[in-house]
């Protein structure tokens, strides 16, 4: 029963949402779907509390037991609770100067910094991966070089317009063809997976192993 009930609830709500997506002109469906949407919003918003509890448990224990690197855990909790209390009790609005300051000078730059580290990873991965091991790898290498030069002004300056045109062609023809092929397969796979989960055949996500 521990696994049956979630499957039954999932099936009922899943089918309801699918029907409400496709069928029009039934006010009860629209109203019902609005209710379900609201519940999803409420659950999503509250789920953050689960995460806070987990972080507190893990890092609190680490601090309590003075494990290696416990200072970082302490810092994490100070930041997490500090930001939350400041937002809820002091700032109360995103327009608050202090909140804006923290956002502009802490969150935004840190976020951008991590994202920008990708440039190093891309450089290192390209150096490691693009080796002429066989014909396929050679094709990949040539396409990568054409794309890298064709999508920046330096390519046109050094080699002329043809490099940009070739890059556009790679993007529009072979790339789009490959993307579509993978996407069609993935979409069909996604629908089949959703259906298997909906009817309870695949229930590994419930901690079981299926039928």
């Amino acid at each position: 029963m521990k696994q049956e009930l979630p499957v039954i609830i999932g099936l009922a709500f899943g089918l309801f949402i699918v029907i409400a997506m496709f069928v029009g002109g039934v006010p009860a469906l629209t109203t019902g779907k609005n209710y379900v949407d609201d519940w999803f919003l409420v659950v999503s918003a509250w789920a953050i509390a689960v995460g806070v509890v987990n972080l507190t448990q893990i890092h609190g224990r680490r601090v309590q037991q003075r494990r290696e690197g416990y200072q970082y855990s302490l810092w994490l909790m100070i930041c997490m609770f500090g930001m939350a209390f400041f937002g809820i009790l002091v700032a109360k609005s995103a327009d608050h100067e202090g909140w804006k300051f923290m956002y502009n000078n802490l969150i935004a730059p840190m976020n951008a910094t991590v994202y920008s580290t990708l440039v190093f990873y891309i450089g290192a991965a390209a150096y490691r991966a693009f080796r002429v091991r066989n014909v396929e790898a050679a094709v990949l290498l040539v396409a990568a070089v054409v794309m890298m030069l064709g999508r920046v002004p330096l390519g046109t300056v050094l080699l002329g317009d043809w490099i940009g045109d070739t890059a556009e062609w790679i993007l529009n023809v072979p790339n789009s063809a490959g993307m579509r092929g993978i996407q069609i397969g993935a979409t069909l796979g996604g629908i089949a997976t959703a259906l298997r989960i909906l009817v309870g055949i695949e229930r590994a996500h419930l901690g079981g192993t299926g039928d």
Binding site: I182, Q183, G185, A186, L188, G189, G210
Partner: peptide
């Protein structure tokens, strides 16, 4: 695993 292979995994 490319695309649908992920869904076929289980």
């Amino acid at each position: 695993l490319i695309g649908e292979e992920l869904y076929a995994a289980s």
